[in-house]
Design a protein around this nucleic acid. Structure first.
Length: 455
RNA sequence: GCGACCGUAGCUCAGGGGUAGAGCACCUGGUUGUGGUCCAGGAUGUCGCGGGUUCAAAUCCCGUCGGUCGCCCCA
């Protein structure tokens, strides 16, 4: 394969966005922004690449092989395209130090990069919605960020039968693991093992579990508890009773349950002590959103990380939040048939397509008319083809899904233009001077009709 | 980094040793001032690339590049 051929493709794992793809992306981002803003979060942004070292603070040197990192030609500073937004956020929060008003509610929609082999739901470049609530230690804050995530997903048409928020708590999980025989100093390894539980063969799981202090009975017990999910409408104490754990172990879930209930979220949630998240920095609530059938990767993941800002040189600030990527979300919406015009996914439709009959008078007015309609705020298109066959131009207009066509022809002799409603097929003779106002009036009615159709 | 499967028209794909195919999309005409539907017609290929086997390779073999899916990892 000559190099000259493959440079004409997007690099591995990177995507081109044609208009129809961009319409989907905008649809997701509209839902994300809308949910964030309605909950009082403010949008922030940051650099697309950071100092390489920023990313090893939290994740260790091991992450370097997963990064796109580089030096500028002749320079000796190491940079890396950001693989996640959290270090940037923590850096920004830390840089404000004690002047940061608390609580601070921030969200961002960055492009993120990872240098691994692409697979289903996991590409080298993706967009990820990040929501963080800094300075609020209570379960109300955990419930609030879950509410933001669920609000966005509901806005995209997903309900409790489509998605489940699987919730656990590091404290509860630790209580469970301790009850199964894991010593306190092996807890981090145990979390990591539980996180991989569904992926590793049972024998391997048993061997590794034995290595961190679980005997055969302990493994069986852990496996049983981690595999069981309960609707959040059940009291968390039921989990304790069912699995013979101390009630204390689930006390955090009980207080979270109250906050979720206030926000009407319980029907979307499940208690799932098998959710621990691989990351070491989670300190409290941990949760993931999955499709109900569990066929895709996690749509979102989040939790509480009270030590994060301190890790980046700032004061210790309690914090919680989540990330939601566009790739798995789009797969899920596609699977549910929620990615079409009826669900709001559409490139902008022209208000007017200007058509010229081709005679001198019409040709002279063609572009000036389009210009004046654009100045009046309308979305205007016209043909770029040489032929001025009216039939062809109307065909082009309907191909663009134009709402109206304005036809310039013989009627100009009496100062009129023909306006055609492309949906109804009706035609009207409109005085040239009234055209913009006439169209704006009709388009307002058009939008109202569309709304009433949608509801 | 490892493994499996797949590369044929713009797109989705059929053909698995013997003349390169279908549907969709596109273009033209029916219709020189009226679109969507319909009818008729038309253009389209290094069968990813390189080598090998064969009288003959899109087809079989080897290699390579690319894609998809999985493993590792998961922010």
């Amino acid at each position: 394969m000559a190099a000259s051929k493959h440079v004409f493709q997007a690099p591995k794992g990177m995507r081109d966005f044609f208009p129809e793809d961009m319409a989907v992306r905008q649809h997701l981002e509209r839902a994300w922004r809308s949910a964030s803003i309605r909950h009082g979060f403010e949008e922030i942004g940051g650099p697309t690449f950071e100092h390489l070292d920023l990313f090893t603070i939290k994740s260790g040197e091991g992450i370097v092989s997963e990064l796109f990192s580089f030096q500028r030609s002749g320079g000796d500073t190491d940079y890396a395209l950001r693989p996640e937004f959290t270090p940037t956020l923590a850096r920004m929060a830390a840089s404000k130090g004690r002047s940061l008003p608390l609580p601070t509610k921030w969200f961002a929609i960055p492009d993120l990069f990872r240098a691994e082999r692409p697979q289903r739901g996991r590409l080298r470049e993706h967009r990820q919605w990040n929501v963080d609530l800094l300075g609020a230690p209570g379960p109300d804050a955990d419930a609030e960020v879950i509410a933001v995530a669920v609000t966005a997903l509901r806005g995209l048409g997903l309900g409790p039968a489509d998605i489940r928020v699987r919730i656990s708590h590091r404290g509860a999980a630790a209580g469970l693991l301790a009850a199964c025989g894991v010593p306190g100093d092996r807890m981090a390894e145990a979390f990591s093992l539980v996180d991989r539980r569904e992926k590793v063969p049972t024998e391997v799981f048993a061997t590794q579990a034995a290595a961190i202090g679980l005997d055969e009975a302990g493994v069986a017990r852990l496996d049983k508890i981690a595999a069981s999910r309960l609707p959040a409408t059940t009291q968390p104490t039921t989990i304790a009773e069912k699995h013979d754990l101390p009630v204390d172990a689930v006390s955090e879930l009980t207080s979270l349950s109250v906050e979720l209930d206030k926000r009407g979220l319980l029907p979307f949630c499940d208690w799932d002590l098998g959710i621990v998240r691989g990351l070491a920095y989670y300190t409290g609530t941990v949760w993931e959103i999955h499709d109900a059938a569990g066929t895709f990767r996690a749509v979102a993941g989040g939790g509480r990380y009270d030590e994060l800002v301190g890790l980046f040189g700032g004061p210790t600030i309690p914090a919680c939040g989540f990330g939601m990527g566009d790739v798995v979300l789009a797969l899920l919406l596609e699977d549910r048939g929620l990615l079409d015009a009826d669900h709001g996914v559409l490139s902008p439709r022209p208000d007017v397509f200007v058509v010229s009959s081709g005679d001198d008078q019409a040709e002279g007015l063609f572009i000036p008319l389009a210009t004046s309609l654009r100045d009046a705020g309308l979305h205007v298109r016209h043909t770029f083809k040489a032929g001025r066959n009216i039939g062809k131009q109307l065909k082009e207009a309907s191909g663009h899904l134009a709402k109206f066509a304005v036809i310039l022809g013989d009627e100009l002799d009496s100062g009129h233009m023909v306006v055609k409603d492309m949906t109804a097929g009706e035609q009207f003779k409109v005085p040239a001077g009234d055209l913009a106002a006439w169209l704006q009036r009709r388009l307002a009615g058009y939008a109202a009709d569309k709304r009433s159709c949608e509801h």
